[in-house]
């Protein structure tokens, strides 16, 4: 590229000048104080030795802290133990590190050395020989002449990993029954219960404006409790029935202004837990999707597309809130076959 710079248009009389500046070579070396003054060198030596000494003291401190201040049964004692042990380590490593660097900067040779580079590519002769070796090897193996052999080999090697991959993939997904996404443990008559205590809820206990975290009654006794809870958790809210807008086909899904919505965000599944009483908006703390509880939990802001699924509820003979059925659609984030 440096040759191309001859193209720039310059007055003819300046053509005796070089076209580009030339590298001036290494800058002159400056002696350090420790190079010229033996006392300065001695001072540096003493400082380095002192730093190594400090490092050893740090180690002793850390070991002493281990034995003298073990964590007791309180948080404060754990803090103290962590602090003393850590400070000991910090001094032990930090001081030794500073000593080593100070040594290299003050006492070790600081004259820059120059090492030649060579092009990464091999010499022409070596490349030629390598090409010959490869050609010899290829013709030796007969790969180019025996096409059937090549095909057979590639097929065999391409298939071989299957014997490993099939058991692996087959095993890791459990039963691969993805239809479980569609159902929760709510069914007709399941009582609504407080999360996490499991206490069942009477409609009369709820005042207008209150919001209750709800799980299905009996959740705490099922074996796969966390999986069921991750789908079945519900937020129960009592609104003034006059503010409630309900779709005609869902008129009987609420009870006297009490509505129950899935607490699993339809965006990526966080628990939608922040309820603002004044606006009846429900906010997902993870990505700020906002749902309007008074209007079918429709999305009013944020990255979610769909409203939260509603759980149809009613009361039983004793006044306890119960589910009419399971959710009518899969809860939680969207997936490919959600509507199938």
């Amino acid at each position: 590229m440096s040759d191309e710079s001859t193209e720039v248009g310059l007055p003819a009389e300046q053509h005796d000048l070089p076209h580009r500046f030339e590298n001036p070579g290494l800058p002159p070396h400056h002696e350090r104080l420790t190079d010229t003054d033996p006392r300065a060198a001695k001072r540096a030596e003493r400082l380095i030795a002192a730093l190594f000494g400090l490092s050893a003291l740090g180690t002793i401190g850390a070991v002493a802290a281990f034995f003298v201040v073990p964590p007791e049964q309180t948080v404060a004692s754990i803090r103290l133990s962590t602090l003393l042990l850590g400070l000991g380590l910090a001094v032990a490593f930090g001081a030794a590190g500073i000593a080593a660097i100070h040594w290299s900067k003050t006492l070790m040779n600081d004259r820059e050395m120059v090492e030649e580079r060579h092009p990464q590519a091999s010499s022409a002769a070596a490349r030629e020989q390598a090409a010959q070796v490869i050609a010899d090897g290829v013709s030796d193996s007969g790969l180019s002449r025996r096409g059937a052999l090549k095909g057979a080999m590639v097929t065999a090697l391409a298939l071989a990993p299957l014997g490993f991959a099939v058991p692996l993939i087959g095993g890791v997904g459990g039963d691969w029954n993805i239809s479980k996404f569609r159902h929760t443990m709510w069914k007709k008559g399941t009582k609504l219960a407080h999360d996490p205590s499991g206490r069942t809820i009477k409609a009369a206990d709820l005042t207008i404006g209150s919001a209750v975290h709800v799980i299905p009654d009996g959740l705490n006794d099922v074996p796969d409790m966390l999986e069921e809870k991750a789908k079945a958790m519900v937020l129960l809210i009592r609104l003034d029935p006059r503010t409630l807008k309900e779709a005609p086909d869902r008129k009987d899904w609420s009870y006297e202004g009490i509505v129950a919505y899935s607490k699993v965000c339809t965006h990526v599944g966080c628990p939608v837990a922040l309820y603002e009483q004044r606006t009846h908006h429900l906010l997902c703390p993870c990505h700020q999707s906002t749902f309007d509880i008074a209007d079918g939990a429709k999305v009013v802001f944020g990255p979610a597309k769909r409203p939260l699924p509603q759980l149809p509820i009613t009361v039983d003979a004793e006044g306890y809130l119960v589910a009419q059925s399971d959710f009518h659609e899969p809860v939680g984030p969207s997936f490919w076959e959600r509507l199938k």
């Binding site: 850590g86 910090a90 490593f93 930090g94 590190g97 660097i101």
Partner: peptide, 9 residues
Amino acid sequence: LIIFGVLAL
């Protein structure tokens, strides 16, 4: 050693 020291701190 310095990085270890800083992380310990």
